[in-house]
Amino acid sequence: MSVLVKIPTQLRAAAGGEAEASVEGATVQEVLDGLFQRHEELRVRLADDDGSLRRFVNVYVAGEDIRFLDGLATPVSDGAEVTILPAVAGG
């Protein structure tokens, strides 16, 4: 299954300048692992030592925050869009 991952500007330098990456995976976890394999540098920036996402990292599947879904176990379908964004305060 191929999923489109949207990479935030702050991470593009660590992702070879790419704004998007097409990655295989059936869950968010698998997709992120695929992304980290391609760009090892992204792993340390987005994930803590225990593998969980850092607390200021928000991940969305088709626009929905994965914390409202199944977290990293959230399934992704073929052609889905996974967006990584920083948390931003103040509204």
């Binding site: 935030p8 330098a13 660590a14 920036r45 987005l46 850092r54 200021f56 990292v57 920083p86 948390a87």
Partner: peptide
């Protein structure tokens, strides 16, 4: 700038 490129912190 608003996000740390190293750890995504504010």
């Amino acid at each position: 700038l608003y996000v740390c490129e190293r750890c995504f912190g504010p």
